[in-house]
């Protein structure tokens, strides 16, 4: 088992590792058109304005926009798992793995509220640091 106390490192560029453990997703909000994008951007992808983008912390809750159950993945990757796209409360969209029971009908999962948690993926980099990435936990029934 890998060291549970390994130093955390962001597995993806839009995850922020906080020294006090308050890890979160970072996004960009355009003051011109109001669009919220995932990650730190230099310009707004939606309207093309380049001096209007402010980096903002994204919420740790959201709802399932869509998902599917992956029964075939790359060799060595355990299946099945749920690949989901989450509409983050307050703006932004992020993809990832949805924990919980494998649904018989993924369509029924659309709208389900989730908590977005930044967790140890169990993977380590060459320096032994822990890759942290987003994971989605179901909070209740789909709405």
């Amino acid at each position: 088992m890998s060291d549970p106390l390994a130093e955390p490192v962001a597995a993806v560029p839009y995850v922020v590792i906080d020294r006090d453990g308050d890890h979160h997703l970072i996004g960009s909000r355009c003051a011109q058109c109001g669009t919220t994008l995932l990650g730190r951007r230099v310009a707004c992808a939606a309207c093309g304005t380049h001096d209007s983008v402010e980096h903002v912390r994204l919420a740790d809750t959201g709802r399932v926009r869509t998902c599917t159950v992956i029964n075939r993945s790359y060799p060595g990757v355990p299946v099945p798992f749920i690949a989901a796209v989450i509409d983050i409360d307050g703006g932004g969209v992020v993809r990832g793995t949805l924990r919980g029971d494998i649904p018989a009908d993924p369509v029924a999962e659309v709208g389900r509220p989730v908590r977005i948690s930044i967790e140890d993926s169990g993977q380590r980099d060459t320096a032994g640091r822990a890759f942290y990435s987003q994971v989605f936990h179901p909070l209740g029934a789909a709405a």
Partner: peptide
């Protein structure tokens, strides 16, 4: 480095 397949969807 980070093997994202399965960890953050697919």
């Amino acid at each position: 480095g980070f093997q994202e397949e399965g960890a953050i969807g697919t």
